[in-house]
Simulated assay, not measured.
Amino acid sequence: MADELRARIRSGALRPGDRMPTQAQLAHEFGVERGAVRQALRILQSERLLTNVSKGSPATVAPDPARALTGPEAPPLPTTVALAPRIAAAFAAEHVEIDAVCLTSISLTLAIGEPLRQIHAGRLKPAKVDVRVLLPSRDIDLAFPVPVEGREDDWVHDRWLAMRNAQGQVLRHNLLALRATHGIDVRVTFRALPFTPPVKLYLLNNTEALFAYYTLMRREAEIDHEHLEMYDAQGTQSMLFSFRQGAGLRDTTFVEQSHLWFNALWETISSELVLTS
């Protein structure tokens, strides 16, 4: 959605100073929920293509969109804002290829929802989808999340493992369902890493790399009415940096090296991963 609106602004279909359609109108046009519309508008605002983005009046095309920051030059945005539009854009390809390294697949599972809605609405129809995901092994001592002070039980690890498995199962189920509903050739594969990844990485169609750091924070969780201090990372809020093939030597090299890194992990030290407790 953000890509389509960006193209309309760049082409002059939406001119400087024009008021955008309302969020309700955009939601109806693209067949998405209001939340997805707001995400797309915030992305375009961050790229300086739109002004006055709010829940009230419609946004306005910036006075000089030619000077906007777009694509890899745009500032990083939280994963919850930036990932879904890029995943949806990737699903416009005939053969969709997504590789991911993450602590759990929750961000990817949420982001996949947008292209799935567009597929069900008939707006997207890839012929083939290949998804590979690297997640930490259940057998390692995680670097995070961990209790601030040691505990005899493994509650934090068990909680992470349950989340890892549940989100992975949802992701796999939602994608594999496309075989029956739309005749799309889908493969979803998970493998286990022998370490806790300090970063998250999404590789889209061999042309784009989205990269974010897991920033640790100390927070409190409640366990059986007891409060536990733990070190954890909120991956959905991690700032996502975009690098694209062909957007300059720096970006192109980053995308290429990221693919080499992912494939090396996949083919060497990773192991079979079963999404069960």
Rank of each mutant, 00 (worst) to 15 (best):
M1F: 06
D3W: 09
R8I: 05
I9S: 08
R10S: 05
R10P: 03
G17A: 13
M20S: 05
M20L: 13
Q23T: 02
Q25W: 06
A27R: 00
G31C: 04
E33G: 14
V37N: 03
R38G: 14
R38Y: 15
R38S: 09
Q39V: 15
L41R: 07
L41W: 03
E47R: 15
L49K: 03
L49H: 05
L49V: 12
T51A: 14
V53K: 00
S54M: 09
S54K: 00
G56R: 07
G56T: 07
S57A: 15
P58E: 01
P58Q: 01
V61P: 00
D64T: 15
R67P: 02
T70M: 04
G71D: 11
G71N: 11
P72T: 08
P72C: 11
P72R: 00
E73A: 15
A74H: 09
T80E: 12
A82E: 12
A84L: 02
A84T: 13
A88M: 02
A88P: 00
F91A: 09
V96I: 04
E97T: 11
I98A: 01
L103T: 09
I106M: 12
S107F: 07
S107R: 04
E114C: 04
I119M: 05
I119H: 01
A121P: 01
A127I: 07
A127L: 12
V131Y: 05
R132A: 08
V133F: 00
L134K: 11
L135Y: 00
P136Q: 12
R138C: 06
L142T: 05
L142A: 10
V146C: 08
E149C: 08
G150E: 11
G150S: 12
R151C: 14
D154S: 06
D158R: 13
R159S: 14
R159N: 08
L161R: 12
M163N: 07
M163I: 13
N165C: 15
Q167S: 14
Q169C: 03
H173N: 08
L176D: 12
L176F: 08
A177L: 13
A177S: 10
R179D: 11
G183T: 03
V186R: 02
V188R: 01
T189C: 10
F190W: 01
F190N: 00
A192R: 13
L193F: 02
P194S: 12
F195K: 11
P197L: 06
V199Q: 13
T207Q: 10
T207M: 05
E208K: 07
F211Q: 11
A212V: 04
Y214S: 07
Y214V: 04
T215I: 09
L216D: 00
L216K: 11
M217C: 07
E220W: 14
E222N: 04
E226T: 13
A233D: 01
Q234W: 10
T236H: 13
Q237E: 12
S238M: 04
S238R: 04
F241W: 12
F241D: 12
F241A: 12
F243R: 09
Q245N: 03
G246Y: 08
G246D: 11
G248T: 03
D251R: 07
T253Y: 01
Q257F: 08
N263H: 06
A264G: 15
W266I: 08
E267M: 11
T268Q: 15
S271W: 01
T276K: 02
S277P: 05
